[in-house]
């Protein structure tokens, strides 16, 4: 039995597969635990990417706000 690669499953879940391949993949996933596990791990990667985006934005924002204030000194009046 041929299993799917991570990239093939990425194509599948992102709609980059043609209809015929998509149906076959969908059927395969119904009974193949190994490919299903791989698909789940891609979803976990998505969650890590979400976290990464959020965390990097927070750091960037903290540094950005400070830089902005350095350029335009605070008016204490």
């Amino acid at each position: 039995m041929k299993h799917y690669t991570r990239e093939e499953l990425d194509c599948y879940r992102n709609g980059d597969m043609n209809l015929f391949s998509r149906i076959i993949c969908s059927e395969h996933l119904k009974f193949c635990r190994s490919c299903h596990k791989l698909l789940d791990s891609l979803k976990e990667d998505d969650a890590l990417l979400d976290e990464l985006r959020g965390k990097l934005d927070r750091l960037k924002q903290a540094a950005g706000e400070a830089n902005k204030l350095n350029r335009f000194p605070e008016n204490d009046c």
Binding site: L59, K60, A62, A63, E65, A66, L69, N70
Partner: peptide, 20 residues
């Protein structure tokens, strides 16, 4: 490390000048 230190300063609501 600057962004991390600034973020920590934010937790204690330090003023911008205090954070710097």
């Amino acid at each position: 490390y600057r962004p991390l230190i600034l973020l920590r300063g934010q937790d204690f609501a330090l003023k911008p000048t205090e954070k710097e």
